[in-house]
Amino acid sequence: MKPAPFDYIRVDTLDEAADVLAQCGDDARVLAGGQSLMAMMNMRLAQPVVVVDILHATGSRRPEIAKGRLRLSALVRQEALSTHAGLAQEVPLLAQAAPWIGHIQTRMRGTVCGSVAHADPSAELPLVLVALDGRVHLKSRRKRRTVPAREFFLGMMVTEKTDDELIEAVDVPLTPPGTGTAFREVGRRKGDFAIVSCAAMVRGTKTRLAVGGVNDTPVVADWENLAPADVAEALNAFAWSLDARDDMHASARYRRDLVRRLGETTIGEARSCAD
């Protein structure tokens, strides 16, 4: 199929994009990498009146460190993130998740903030952003505001972002030394969205597991002093707390089983590399 007719506006700055969004509201969509938006437009699941292209806007296109956090602007492509030289030391969980994001072809064009804005519950970047206590920086013509990642994702492809806002950047804290992290997922094929994905972090007495692909948003479980012998029981309780449902890709039972098995493996890997 072909997309419905639309007007195309190419902007030179994010301020210009915010001006267009202020005028057009829900009739406009922001185009950065276009790997999700264009597919939805071709299937006419999205029919914007105006497409605002920020691809050539001025701004940073590489990850940057500021005030103990890794900042990824709206123009940072997923490939720029995955090839960032210091990523494995700065935020190892992001480095571990990056190879699972789509395919090399989509990573070359897709942006980090675009994936966050799309808010697919099976996508890797929203999950890792939530697991790391990341933040989403929103910009409109009137103001800027920052939203914690756990509060940003409201449902399947539904976010806290209003019609006149765009995501200016996301950021995550640099990972403290001594923190063990691990990422695993199961999908039908390499590069497909995950049926279930797990991101684990272990530091001292604290254990965290974030799960994607089950609920409509990423879900986080935190445990204090979780003994290895208690992991299976804790994961069983966590799996049953999730809103797992049957669909064309997997049954609710299979998803819960994956949370138990994949979660145990991921937590074990994170523990093994924690100091």
Rank of each mutant, 00 (worst) to 15 (best):
C273G: 00
P3W: 15
E165G: 11
R260S: 08
C24E: 15
T146S: 12
T146M: 07
A119R: 03
K143E: 15
D120W: 02
E269M: 13
G268E: 05
V170W: 07
V214E: 09
L31E: 01
E160H: 13
T265K: 14
E224P: 01
V220S: 10
T207V: 13
N42T: 13
A80Q: 08
G102V: 03
L93Q: 05
V214R: 14
V116F: 03
G263H: 04
E79L: 14
M40R: 09
A244M: 07
A117T: 01
L242T: 08
K206S: 15
V170M: 04
T162D: 15
L70F: 05
R135F: 00
F153P: 06
A131C: 10
T146N: 02
A227G: 03
H137N: 14
S140N: 07
G178C: 07
R29N: 08
G68D: 13
I267G: 04
E185W: 02
Q96P: 01
E264F: 03
A119H: 00
A169V: 02
A270L: 09
A237P: 06
P92E: 03
V220W: 01
D15W: 04
E233C: 02
V128R: 11
G191V: 06
I104G: 11
D243P: 03
G178Y: 05
L72T: 03
V136W: 10
P148M: 04
D247Y: 08
A98L: 00
S251R: 00
A169R: 11
H84R: 07
K67M: 12
I195N: 00
R144N: 14
A88D: 13
P228S: 12
Q96V: 09
V259M: 06
W100Y: 14
G155L: 01
T159Y: 05
R107C: 03
T205W: 00
C273N: 15
L125K: 05
A18Q: 05
T13V: 02
D171H: 08
Y8S: 06
E160R: 10
A252Q: 06
M201F: 00
M40N: 13
D171P: 02
T159D: 06
V136K: 11
Q96S: 13
K67N: 12
T181W: 09
